[in-house]
Write a protein that binds this DNA or RNA. Sequence first.
DNA 1: GTATTTTGTTTAGCGTCGGCACAAAGTCAG
DNA 2: CTGACTTTGTGCCGACGCTAAACAAAATAC
Lengths: 398, 398
Amino acid sequence: MERGRGALGPALELVHTGRAPTRAVLTSELGVTRATAGAVAAELEALGLITVDSRPTASAGAQGRPSHRLFVDERGPVVLAAQIHADGYRVALVGLGGRIVATAAGCGTIPADPAHVLAEAVAAGSALLSETGRRCLGAGLAVPSAVAEPDGEALNPLHLAWPPGAPVRELFLRALADAAIPGVTERIGFTGNDVNLGALAEHRHGAGRGARDLLCVASGHRGVGGALVLDGRLHSGSSGLALEVGHLTVNPEGAPCHCGSRGCLDVEADPLAFLGAAGRTPGPEGSLLHQAVDLLRNDYADPGVRAAADLLIDRLGLGIAGLVNILNPDRIILGGLHRALVEADPERLRAVVADRSLWGRSGGVPILPCSLDHNSLVGAAELAWQPVLDDPLVVVDR
Amino acid sequence: MERGRGALGPALELVHTGRAPTRAVLTSELGVTRATAGAVAAELEALGLITVDSRPTASAGAQGRPSHRLFVDERGPVVLAAQIHADGYRVALVGLGGRIVATAAGCGTIPADPAHVLAEAVAAGSALLSETGRRCLGAGLAVPSAVAEPDGEALNPLHLAWPPGAPVRELFLRALADAAIPGVTERIGFTGNDVNLGALAEHRHGAGRGARDLLCVASGHRGVGGALVLDGRLHSGSSGLALEVGHLTVNPEGAPCHCGSRGCLDVEADPLAFLGAAGRTPGPEGSLLHQAVDLLRNDYADPGVRAAADLLIDRLGLGIAGLVNILNPDRIILGGLHRALVEADPERLRAVVADRSLWGRSGGVPILPCSLDHNSLVGAAELAWQPVLDDPLVVVDR
DNA sequence: GTATTTTGTTTAGCGTCGGCACAAAGTCAG
DNA sequence: CTGACTTTGTGCCGACGCTAAACAAAATAC
């Protein structure tokens, strides 16, 4: 009787990622008949997840009957996304399509206590939910650390004041339970590394759309992180520790690293390294990342700054070339300081990567700056949306 | 009416990989009812792909009615697998389950001409088919070179006398067409890198069974290759060039490599490097790989050989640790000379990898020798079997 | 020998999707 | 403006592929 149950999840994902702007496109993308696609769209609309605009469209331009347009429901449910970083936290309510509905930030009054910071973040998110009156279907958290699977422990929260091995997923779940957010009653607090989640967000809604093998590299405030999205799914390794690229050697005679080696990407291509190469000492206000990005953008004409940028691009390119030889991605996206570097001089980085990677064809891989604001936050939301994308019918029970 | 069409492919794959020894297990693995599993098994038997042993089993030991045993049909169809290596070629007829039914080898009379070598190999395979009278459903080829997608060109057949960029897939298809093998009328000549295909074979039938993220590293006669199997599927990158691990730097002051760098895995951990480290000069007869493996296995008591083995293990471990940090696999399998190295001293390699990889948990990843004879050949057969595994009904038309 | 457990088989029924015919909504040509 | 054409949406029917349930079969346990 009810048509289109099996295709419900794929259909929602297509609308969610913007790949199904109309019902006709949905039909062809799903590979089903128009009848089935219509039933699927109607079902998703009944669930309150999408809206079908059946009014005659203004001007289609093309021949034939204009197709009904499909939108993510702007008044539909949201998920709660939280991100922890060196300066504190940021929370947001994120709807389907990766749209940030509301956001708030705080500094975290007791930075050394993860439970306390998470409780504050969740409280801020809960306040957003109360203010907006939106229905919440889940929650996701991004942290600037490798997150070990399956336990969800933050292994190296180096530039947080947290103890290594903090059980962030458990603490996040507990904070959610304590906050007693309506609708968020089960264990639906997903947790991941911020660069990983940023990559996921870029793949679905940003500069990574359409890529099959997407590699992301991003500097945080300290250190360098990587992420890999394969066939639309995050590859975080068997225990969540993949793409820890910070300790690739890019300068054999370089500075010593806490890992015991020297010349690691972590110490040769992060904001502190850039400030040092430019002969600046970090100031007291503003994060290292902001200081470095501001310096790069405002004083790129300064020869010393320019030389520092060139040096970092060369080192970064060496690291990326190594990754290209191993992973052979079809697109590369850079975040944090690296985004600013590739924006400052796109050609130099492409040339270095092409020169140091083995095959000309791999060297020709596109390298783009990331394109989403708060992509880690949006990625955390993607994690929370995933159960709904897998089976949209789960929304009826909650 | 006909039950169990959609589950046909997954069911055959379960039997093929040995994960469904009985109908009861098939039922639970597929997640379907006994009725459906029974229909699926009957259909596969009717297709001549598996046999269902419904005779009362000798002694089950367990309570309840014994389940019918499922076997790959030993008299069923086969695929033609071919492997090109430095010394010539090897061909085999491979049935479901990765079982080699018949095999033959030759040296290749005009090694510099890929078309000629491939024609000889296909002719040898065709002869095997005539002798055995088996039905052939496809053909696969393994070559010791990166194979670029989507064109199927051998980019670096370094230790073959082939020109770089030889269009091996096209040449293989042409050789198959020229041989006019009954049944192999369409374009079903699949081609891949030998280490990649070996990894696929190990994952399905060998030491890699059950691994989710499997990393393989293997030395050929010259150089080092890598492969990655993720969620049961080969990850060969967007253009087939992933896991070209030969140019990871493992010894910054090492020997120069043709890639322009120095101390690459290719020149620091291959059979030639081992013979050199042991103070031996390569002899004229036998491949470098065989000479190195023989030396290692026969003269391991010799302090010089032992020291050379330790040195290569240390370098190899450094390279593997780098890969572990990037890929976070849950199992590692070694082939070629590296297999012999890990068999000679399993603990040393594990210790090096654990020491040089970032996380203790990743350092604890199991490192095993490969377990299949001719795994590249079996992997080439896997490539050819894949269409049948995707939809077993394709066998009825051919 | 009877009860219990587990597996295989048969039958009925239902849910999901494709196919088809028809209606609807636009463009294009004159 | 009108009619032909193109493309999209919808309702109806049937086929296919599965589940559910009852029953039969083959072993062990007591």
